[in-house]
Design a protein around this nucleic acid. Structure first.
Lengths: 334, 334
DNA sequence: CTGTTAGCGCATTCAG
DNA sequence: CTGAATGCGCTAACAG
């Protein structure tokens, strides 16, 4: 950076017009003679003029910036959501502030507040850990909000969710089609809403098929490789009749794969295993995992589109987008 | 958001003082009577006053915002860098704009320009794809810049790099210590500087050990699982004498693992394989990969620390931080 | 310790 | 089609 920044005033002087005329030329708005405009743009470019978004923001009360709040960008799930959201924002000429909360509710509140001070035009909040009341309060001072992976009924926010129940149903039906009748379920953390929904899908599919299942086939499970390994081992030794295992997510499924290896069960012949999410790893383990693909990138895109619409039009009602997960059939459960 | 925003003027009126006094109270600067300050803060909190960073930025010429430019946040490498950088920025009270370039040089330039219009206080640019001249030009209007994973000598930017040559040397020495003498190298894209450095490390270690190697043991290779698979297959059938394979990165190493499986080579008995980066996947494949650990999070932290220092103090000389990669020994090359 | 006077750089009226 | 006046919300520099 050499010397001072050039302002609209400098350009106006150089072009021999008023600041207002330069403003019109830059924003391509208001009537202005094409030649005048072209000449001004030429001079502006020559002088390396960069209109100040800060000053413009002060004057217009719109900053062209958005906030994206995630628990942790290093988590591939949120990294892809961020990618999709940023891509969409860029196309619309906006910039996005990335904020991590570290799964800390206090920090979530603090971050939302700092975003307010930055006068962002809107916020996308992913997987909020706040309870309904705190969440509503923290969001109340933001004009436009879209929630991802978190529902909050009764308030005027947009939200983007995965249809976990449909996903659970699709997976279960796939296993039923393969003649499995004794299907176990490693259900994830008891508090997980997505886990509950996936279980609901399982129940619905089993009921549709007229199958009575043993409630003990369903067990809660930490959402990790280790959790899956341990709980699968217990479930499979208690219930040797189980021929297929529906896992809360791919990590759990990989743990189940390890447990099966310990028990010398052949996959998929002795036991079929399915996961959920379709993380990159799912295709690379042995055998590759049958799972439900969730497009995290698409979630980001949808959320940002919804946010931009809400900022422009004043769509302030509570919209909701339900993304459909897709069954991906691989060797672990053909 | 109910009604209008409350401004410093509103708070001043409610507290019966001037705007300036409120400003002093909020910024805890300039002499002010503690009681006055406490009272003003109480009233401000009660009124839900949120000082406008925009207005402050216009007045002070400092925005408290930074730009982070990466090729793609969905790439775990950059996601972790972003995580580290954001964490550090948050601690210092700054917000960061996340920008993806999609590996597109034009977009890189555009993004840097929009960041300039946003009047960021500084920029971190990761793995720039611009040539030296274009890079210097695109950066010339930013006051404080730190480059990550990219060197640009002769200009006043900070940079944070991985010591690829040392890493290459460490890996090669490890293989030499295990009595390997015929060590192949899948070297990554020919244009990759990190690839060139790793090769330099390999050469140095081989020379130190007094080993003459066949230049055909080194082959360029796309930096992906597929690339590794294909090139490894070719190399191993052309040179059955090779007993160890140094791969450009972990993905390539996983491809090599697959190729070995095709050729019925036992790992590590028939062939030792090492990767680079230590991505999460590296520990989960079979057998787990020996590799060089690079702390991407730490790169982000270091880059942000350097940037903040450069913004405050006016350290404008060309600093450089070289991060040491660490050998991680797993089953693929014990 | 506190108030007053001036902008920061731009867009939004309204006149011409 | 273009220009002049006014204010966005805040801080810096100076008075008091």
């Amino acid at each position: 950076m050499n010397s001072k920044r050039v302002t609209i005033q400098d350009v106006a002087a150089a072009a021999g017009v008023s600041r207002q005329t330069v403003s019109r030329a830059m924003n391509n708005r208001g009537e202005i003679r094409p030649e005048t405009r072209a000449e001004i743009l030429r001079i502006a470019e020559e002088m390396n003029y960069r209109p100040s978004s800060i000053a413009r923001g002060l004057a217009t009360q719109r900053t062209g910036t958005l906030g994206l709040v995630v628990p942790d960008v290093a988590n591939p799930f949120f990294a892809e959501v961020a990618r999709g959201a940023e891509h969409e924002a860029y196309a619309a000429g906006h910039n996005v502030f990335l904020c991590n909360t570290d799964e800390d509710p206090q920090r979530e509140i603090a971050v939302l507040r700092s975003l307010e001070e930055k006068r962002v035009d809107g916020v996308i909040l992913c997987s909020s850990r706040l309870d309904d009341e705190a969440l509503h309060k923290a969001l109340s001072r933001h004009a436009s909000v879209v929630l991802v992976n978190r529902q909050l009924n009764g308030y005027e926010f947009g939200c983007v969710l995965i249809d976990d129940e449909q996903g659970g149903k699709k997976i279960t039906q796939h296993l039923l089609n393969s003649q499995h009748r004794t299907i176990g379920f490693l259900a994830g953390p008891p508090a997980s809403r997505s886990g509950q929904k996936r279980v609901a899908g399982y129940r619905a599919a089993m009921a549709d098929a007229g199958i009575i299942y043993d409630p003990d086939w369903l067990r809660p499970c930490p959402p990790s490789v280790e959790g899956g390994h341990k709980v699968a081992a217990g479930l499979l030794s208690d219930h040797p009749e189980i021929t297929a295992l529906f896992c809360y997510n791919d990590l759990v499924a990989i743990g189940a794969l390890q447990a099966s290896h310990d028990l010398e069960l052949a996959i998929p012949d002795d036991l079929a295993i399915v996961g959920f999410d379709d993380i990159p790893l799912a295709a690379l383990v042995t055998p590759p995992l049958t799972t439900c693909h969730v497009s995290r990138y698409e979630m980001g895109v949808q959320a940002m589109k919804m946010l931009l619409e809400r900022i422009d039009g004043c769509a302030t009602e509570c919209q909701q987008v339900l993304l459909q997960p897709e069954l991906v059939i691989r060797a672990s459960a053909p």
